[in-house]
Design a protein around this nucleic acid. Structure first.
Length: 470
DNA sequence: CTATGGCACGGATT
DNA sequence: AATCCGTGCCATAG
């Protein structure tokens, strides 16, 4: 076993406890937002952009999972491997690289572009504006551009044009930055604007895009330089900057053509927080549990800040100390969260291995309370950790983490099996006896409920299936 | 009369 | 304390 040394208690303030709790209940993407926000406003916090493999602690150079751990030597055979990982392909932030789409992200992209965008902005939008945003988002083409006229939308909803434009503006500034624009030019202008908030951009870039997009794409630099009254080298720089940082087709970043065609439309879940898989997808290998952590690097308290605080003037010292406190608190809590999540998954996966590998029929009825006793934490801790988390199973199904605690899933699964097999439509009470023969004692009324859950019609409306066996 | 769905209650779970 | 789940009773449809 590994990492059990952390179990020894470290001092816990009440603030510590409280924040650990809230962090625990956050999903990966929410966590990222939280961290980003703190990172932006707290100078004491520092993100080392390096990527280390969380298991073997080796410095990673390329994207994707650790090359060493991905091809691991045999390690704890029955015990699943649980580790924390950062998935850049999930959380590319506002990065706009046009190339390197990781090859294994087909399982990651389970949300379509409109949903993905809407989720980001839904909270900022007023309730009345949400349907409008949704409407707009359903009219995106493959490039991520709007295919309808904003004026039409305004007329359709009987609202001022300005309001529609505001919504569009919000859409444009969310994740695939520039999505919802009318074309490449507008998209790039938005991207430029967003980029300018975090780093310096060439002063003439805006002009170049506005007036000389044609020349730029045809590499007629001299022509453009004359038009903008600037030097050729300046234009070269701008051109380089643009190709490097802007993407004329926002939707191509990760959504392009490789959608998931087979995924049933029944339930739309979001990007998983946890991925369970066999090594190399081969069922002979041990299970790997990957807990997604949306950071490309290590989060820590900036040591320089720690140094500098000693020399800062008295009146500012309070603020600085406060920042320092917050920063180290966050880091600690994050560690705590990771630790808890890892132990939780470790336990769940070893308890429910049959379910994960062989299917729903083999799920064991376990409760959160039971796990909390085994891990020696409070029930609510497990509750928070489980709720609103989403897991991807080896069979590529995306389900809530709470299915591991579904008491009736196995019975429902058996029930489904019976109904599919037997040729004559069976009444609920007949099903009760059949189920009891299988070892499940449930009331007739309950069977009806399970049927409903599985979307199976009542007996008299059911046409018997053609079955092979009598 | 049989088969089902609705409502609501009590115990378990969160 | 709030919520979920299995179940019993009753009304209704066939």
């Amino acid at each position: 076993m590994f990492q059990s040394h952390v179990h020894s208690l470290r001092p816990m303030t009440s603030a510590h406890l409280a924040q650990t709790m809230t962090l625990l209940s956050l999903t990966s993407s929410e966590l990222r937002q939280q961290i980003d926000a703190e990172l932006a406003q707290n100078p004491a916090l520092e993100l080392l952009e390096e990527r280390r493999c969380p298991t073997c602690h080796r410095l990673l150079t390329s994207k994707g999972p650790c090359p060493i751990c991905s091809q691991p030597q045999v390690r704890g055979l029955d015990e699943p491997i649980v580790f924390i990982s950062s998935r850049e392909d999930f959380y590319t932030g506002s990065g706009m690289s046009t190339e390197d789409i990781p090859e294994d992200n087909l399982s990651a992209v389970t949300e379509d572009l409109p949903t993905f965008v809407l989720r980001q902005i839904a909270l900022e939008l007023s309730v009345q504006d949400r349907p409008i945003a949704a409407y707009l988002l359903t009219h995106l083409d493959d490039n991520g551009f709007l295919t309808i006229d904003t004026l039409d939308v305004a007329r359709y909803y009987h609202i001022p044009l300005e309001r529609v434009q505001n919504i569009i503006r919000m859409i444009q500034r969310s994740d695939p930055v520039g999505v919802g624009s009318s074309g490449p030019q507008e998209a790039m202008l938005v991207q430029l604007e967003v980029l300018a908030e975090s780093r310096p951009v060439p002063p003439l870039a805006e002009m170049a895009i506005k007036n000389g997009l044609g020349q730029l794409s045809h590499h007629q630099f001299a022509d453009l330089a004359r038009q903008l009254k600037t030097s050729l080298s300046e234009i070269r720089e701008i051109s380089h900057f643009i190709t490097e940082n802007l993407n004329p087709f926002p939707a191509h970043e990760h959504w392009g053509d490789n959608r998931h065609p087979d995924e049933p439309l029944s339930e739309v879940y979001h990007q998983p927080d946890i991925i369970i898989n066999f090594l190399n997808d081969s069922p002979k290998n041990p299970l790997v549990v990957e807990i997604i952590l949306p950071l490309n690097g290590t989060l820590r308290v900036n040591p320089l800040f720690r140094q500098a605080i000693k020399q800062v003037s008295e009146e500012k010292k309070g603020d600085w100390k406060n920042d320092l406190e917050r920063a180290s608190l966050l880091v600690k809590c994050l560690q705590q969260r990771n630790h808890t999540m890892r132990r939780l998954m470790q336990r769940i996966v070893s308890l429910q291995q049959d379910f994960i590998i062989k299917g729903e029929t083999f799920i064991k009825p376990i409760t959160r309370a039971q796990i909390s006793k085994e891990l020696d934490v409070h029930e609510s801790t497990i509750s928070r950790a489980v709720s609103s988390k989403i897991v991807q199973l080896p069979n590529k199904r995306i389900v809530p983490l709470s299915v591991f605690f579904d008491r009736s899933l196995n019975i429902r699964s058996v029930l489904r099996g019976i109904i599919i097999q037997e040729s004559r439509p069976l009444s609920d009470s007949e099903l009760v006896t059949l189920l009891s023969e299988e070892g499940f004692k449930v009331a007739r009324r309950t069977v009806a409920k399970y049927r409903a859950m599985e979307g199976i019609l009542p007996a008299h409306l059911r046409r018997s299936f053609i079955s092979a066996s009598t």
